[in-house]
Simulated scan of single mutants.
Amino acid sequence: MGARSHVARWGSSLAVRIPKPVAEQWGVREGSRIEMVPRGDRLVMRKEAHDLDEMLARMSPETLHGEVDTGPARGREVW
């Protein structure tokens, strides 16, 4: 799905609104991180991938949980 928007001023920066249907289809919402890559006369926007090292650095004893029992082995699992 494509949509048109326009460039507006936001403080000393410029901003482009993402129409709601496009944001929903793309899976972004307020606070989502995106990356913008200029490609000639185009601007490619993509959702920023999660950084595992950054996520692990935020881990703390409060965010850890214990093991979860998923029941007995089924099939040929080796435990």
Rank of each mutant, 00 (worst) to 15 (best):
1 M>V: 11
1 M>P: 15
2 G>D: 04
2 G>L: 08
2 G>I: 03
3 A>K: 01
3 A>F: 11
4 R>Q: 14
4 R>A: 15
4 R>D: 14
5 S>G: 02
5 S>L: 01
7 V>N: 01
7 V>T: 10
8 A>E: 02
8 A>C: 05
8 A>V: 08
9 R>L: 10
9 R>G: 05
10 W>G: 05
10 W>S: 07
11 G>T: 01
12 S>N: 13
12 S>E: 09
12 S>V: 01
12 S>A: 13
13 S>I: 13
14 L>Q: 11
15 A>G: 08
17 R>L: 09
17 R>Y: 09
18 I>N: 00
18 I>F: 11
20 K>D: 08
20 K>R: 15
20 K>W: 13
21 P>H: 12
21 P>I: 14
22 V>P: 02
22 V>N: 04
22 V>S: 09
22 V>W: 06
23 A>D: 00
23 A>R: 04
24 E>V: 14
24 E>Y: 13
25 Q>D: 09
27 G>A: 04
27 G>P: 02
27 G>E: 00
28 V>P: 00
28 V>F: 13
28 V>G: 05
30 E>L: 12
31 G>R: 07
31 G>T: 00
33 R>Q: 13
34 I>A: 12
34 I>L: 14
35 E>W: 02
36 M>C: 09
37 V>Q: 14
38 P>N: 04
38 P>F: 03
39 R>K: 08
39 R>I: 05
40 G>V: 08
40 G>D: 03
41 D>K: 14
41 D>M: 15
42 R>P: 07
42 R>K: 13
42 R>S: 05
42 R>D: 11
43 L>Q: 05
43 L>H: 03
44 V>D: 12
45 M>P: 00
45 M>C: 15
45 M>W: 04
45 M>G: 14
46 R>W: 10
46 R>T: 11
47 K>G: 06
48 E>N: 04
49 A>G: 12
49 A>E: 04
50 H>A: 14
51 D>R: 04
52 L>I: 03
52 L>A: 15
52 L>S: 12
52 L>R: 08
55 M>T: 03
55 M>E: 15
55 M>Y: 10
59 M>K: 04
59 M>G: 09
60 S>M: 04
60 S>T: 10
61 P>A: 03
61 P>Y: 09
61 P>W: 02
61 P>T: 00
62 E>L: 10
62 E>N: 09
64 L>E: 02
64 L>G: 08
66 G>H: 09
67 E>V: 13
68 V>Q: 11
68 V>H: 13
68 V>Y: 10
69 D>E: 08
69 D>I: 13
70 T>N: 03
70 T>L: 07
71 G>L: 14
71 G>W: 10
72 P>M: 00
72 P>Q: 02
73 A>D: 05
75 G>V: 07
76 R>E: 12
76 R>L: 12
78 V>R: 15
78 V>P: 00
78 V>D: 01
79 W>P: 05
